[in-house]
Amino acid sequence: MQALPSTSANSPHARRPRVWGWVLLAPMIAWLVLFVILPMVILFVYSFCTRDDLGRVVFEFTFDNYRRVGDPIYLTILGRSIAYAALTTVLCIALGYPVAWFIARQREAVRNTLLLLVMIPFWTSFLIRTYAWITILKGEGLLNGLLLAVGFIPEPLTLLYTPFAVIIGLVYAYLPFMILPIYGSAEKLDNALVEAAHDLGAGPVRAFSEVIVPLTWPGIAAGVLLVFVPAIGMFAITDLMGGARVPMIGNIIQNQFSKAFNWPFGAALGVVFTFMFILAYALIQRRGARDPHS
């Protein structure tokens, strides 16, 4: 993880910005201030408020929302969400890395076509895609039908509404977000380099694991970031394919703004969740900066 993209900020060739460096960055800073920091401030203020009976915020200071966040139940739920996200990330790397590498080895026109083909399935609607998966995985579904016909299994398996289905759904949804960044950094690798490694006596597997993979670390790290982080908050897939039997942190937060009519507590959960992420991210960044290997 030492190669998180952040380290580019510490690139040895980076200079101190002069006027233009700041002027050009200004639009992005403005964007961040307006649409990220300000909403976060609103959220932060809300999290210390009480509510009226419509769930609306009443500006009256309280610390109760944070006291409730400390309940161990929310920690277990967060732990579960993180575990699912981590498993998804690992599987996405395993499935996606060879694909990214293979696409990167093609001619440019073919490369772009293949990249588009990776993404196009996701231009349909999420619900319709998920219902297609339900059609495949259900008790009398296509997969069971196929396995029964081949004689692989004596009776239909229970696939749908299990953790297995959830993982399939999550991997399916996030796989492209692993393939694309890895492709971005694998594309520039020179074949000559790979061959050189091979010429020096490394077998294909060693050449791959000791030369190629380290060179694409930035891509893998970016992919991990783009898959792992959003997957923690995901709950639509766990609801639809897992039967909503176990709550995820995303459900909990969503509920506070809807059924539970408790915006301030939802805000407090959101604040804690976001700050935990910021803290973890900052720690990893710091370690990455200290580690000269990256």
């Binding site: 009976d53 059924k259 539970a260 408790n262």
Partner: peptide
């Protein structure tokens, strides 16, 4: 039921 919805949740 106002604030009781939190108890249910």
């Amino acid at each position: 039921i106002g604030e009781s919805s939190t108890l249910i949740d």
